[in-house]
């Protein structure tokens, strides 16, 4: 009996995370990149004109996006090295399972980077993040990470087969991250300034709708990017 789509996806995700855990290069470079960006952003502004705390939500989500991209790039590079992707394609599993597995591993990767990056921003920018606001930001981060990995996993599968691999992934994905960064930053800013959750509601709705639409659309599109 061939494994179910979910079982196969979990097998593939665990395999990807095992590979990442062995090499750890992508993870460390993403974390160092995020920390560097946090520091450099601080010095790019005049602290007497703009308070760090006003800057923080924007910085948070920009860094979130770019450090996420760093991990996504490696996702299908691993499959192409010795055409291991052919091994997955030849196995009696649904193509969607391959997409789900890769996306799941990417989600864990992005989340792991954020677990370090977000507290670092809170610390360096003196963000008043505690209690309910912290919980809300964590929830927004999860929603944003789902959308980011849904689109990024698909584009990573495409970019790896092109001549401009490293350049093309950000070029294709960044416009798609606009409806992630904008709602996430706006909702965070409102929550941080102590406004009621209802004011962030319409932003959160965009984020949730984006996740739903693009997880489904990318999963349906994925077989077309790998099958000849």
């Amino acid at each position: 009996m061939a494994p179910s789509t979910l079982t196969a996806a979990l097998l593939i995700a665990r395999k990807d995370l095992a590979i990442e855990f062995r090499t750890r290069t992508a993870f460390f470079s993403a974390v160092v990149f995020a920390l560097l960006a946090i520091v450099i952003f601080y010095f790019a502004w005049d602290p007497t004109a703009v308070a760090a705390v006003d800057l923080a939500p924007g910085v948070l989500w920009v860094i979130f996006t770019f450090s996420g991209l760093l991990g996504l790039h490696r996702s299908f590079g691993v499959e192409m090295a010795d055409r291991a992707i052919d091994g997955l394609l030849g196995a009696p599993i649904a193509r969607e399972a391959i997409y789900l597995g890769k996306a799941l591993a990417n989600l864990v990767f992005v989340a792991a980077v954020q677990v370090i990056a977000i507290p670092a921003i809170v610390l360096f920018y003196n963000m008043p993040l505690a209690g309910r606001a912290a919980l809300a930001v964590a929830a927004i981060a999860l929603l944003a990470a789902i959308g980011l990995t849904a689109v990024g996993t698909l584009f990573s599968a495409m970019a790896v087969n092109t001549r401009l691999a490293e350049l093309l992934l950000p070029m294709l994905s960044l416009p798609f991250f606009v409806p992630i960064i904008m709602p996430a930053a706006q909702a965070t800013a409102r929550l941080l300034s102590g406004r009621p959750v209802s004011e962030a509601a319409s932003w959160l709705k965009i984020l949730i709708a984006f996740d739903l639409v693009f997880v489904v659309a990318c999963m349906l599109a994925f077989p077309h990017t790998i099958e000849e």
Partner: peptide, 18 residues
């Protein structure tokens, strides 16, 4: 073709956000 379809799906989201 994949990008052409996803791009069209993206437009309402960008519109709503901006």
């Amino acid at each position: 073709a994949v990008l052409g379809i996803l791009g069209a799906l993206l437009i309402p989201f960008i519109h709503l956000s901006v």
